[in-house]
Simulated assay, not measured.
Amino acid sequence: MSDRTPTNDRTPTLARRDALRLIGTAGALAAAAPLASAQTAPAATAAPTAMNGHGFYRQKIGNMTVTVLSDGTAPLAALLPTWGANPDRQAEFTQTLAEYHVPATNTVNHFNPVLVELDGQRILIDTGRGGAAGQLVTNLRRAGIEPDSVNTVFITHGHGDHIGGLTTAGKPTYPNAQHVMGEAEFNFWVTQATPNDAVKNNLIALKDRFRLIQPGQEIVPGLTTVPTPGHTANHLSVLAQSAGQGVMILGDAGGHFLISLKHQGAYVSFDTNGAQAAQTRQRIFNRIVTEGLWVTGYHFPFHAIGHLRRLNARSYEFEPTVWNWS
């Protein structure tokens, strides 16, 4: 709109005509009332809302706002066999990648933590890689969210690309948040004879901040853990529900967005127990489709949120939601 917005009864008629012309004929009637009232009182300025796509994607589900946050990407020289590790099925996986026009080489791996806002609470699920590579905090702020406003942090499992962002320069990244993790998963990592640096710096160093829970237990009202073992022995996904709708936040239980869904029995090279992980995926995919849930996967390509479609009794397909800028 023209910057000559009317401020009193002496505003030139030309300014109003210019403003209406810029709005367009279709919007003229709708704009007339605000323009008239603006002559006697200054218009309130709405706080700007960051547009989807600048490292984050918001989706309204029930009364929740679910925001997928990119922690960036890492180069991936070859998709196979990492994301489809069955040695006797490499030709089959290669054919599927070609069929769907998914690059098999010189591609990237995505990292997508999720923030759920419900009933005035902000719950962050997984924290990315941290360090110089991690982009989660930057993209949180782009979405208008400061780390100290996060109320709860839940960790699906103890791999470094999920726990690395718990600390920054040796201090908690989310200083006001209660930290929550499955008890068995937490204990597995912190009792290692020689824990890796990510575990030492982010789990052991923060052990007094953690509340440890069980599979099927509530993280906060509306968010419940779902046992999804195989990727790690005690991996937990999250079911978030509100107003009759729900989203399954899979963490790494989803595997690869194409191969793990389309090929029953496919497993990933960094699954702790490949056969169990594949069985878990079939079970959780079936539940997502049967219950009509939204879904997001940690390593799915950004914006990484949508639904699943059943192709047949053994095969599924990920359908990313239609992009909405607001």
Rank of each mutant, 00 (worst) to 15 (best):
G246A: 15
A278G: 06
P229G: 05
Q264H: 11
A240F: 10
W294R: 04
V226L: 13
R283L: 13
G246L: 07
A313S: 14
G230F: 07
W294I: 00
I249M: 08
R287Y: 04
N312R: 04
L250G: 11
P301H: 06
L261S: 13
G292S: 06
F302G: 04
I219Q: 09
T290H: 09
Q245R: 14
G230P: 09
S260D: 07
L261V: 00
Q264P: 00
G222M: 10
A275S: 13
G244V: 06
L239V: 06
V238M: 11
R287M: 14
Q279W: 01
V226S: 04
N234I: 03
E291D: 15
G297Y: 03
V295A: 14
T224C: 08
L293M: 14
R310E: 13
F300H: 13
Y267M: 03
E291F: 01
V322P: 02
L236P: 12
A313M: 04
T225K: 11
K262Y: 09
A253S: 15
P227V: 05
A278I: 01
G292W: 05
Y298P: 00
R283M: 14
H303G: 03
Y267G: 05
T296Y: 03
R314I: 00
G306E: 05
L261D: 06
G251R: 04
L236I: 07
G274R: 02
L311A: 04
H307M: 09
L308P: 12
I288E: 01
T290L: 01
H303D: 08
T225M: 12
T272N: 11
G274S: 06
R310S: 12
K262Q: 13
I219G: 07
S260G: 14
L311W: 00
N286P: 03
V268P: 00
A275G: 05
V322D: 09
Q282T: 07
Q282V: 02
A277K: 06
G306W: 08
Y267C: 02
V268K: 00
A304Q: 02
A275W: 02
T232V: 07
F285C: 08
L261E: 10
P320D: 04
A266T: 10
Y298H: 14
I249E: 13
S315Y: 01
G230H: 11
D252F: 09
V247D: 05
A277D: 04
S260A: 11
R310P: 07
L258H: 05
E319N: 09
R309L: 10
S269Y: 01
Q241D: 11
N273P: 03
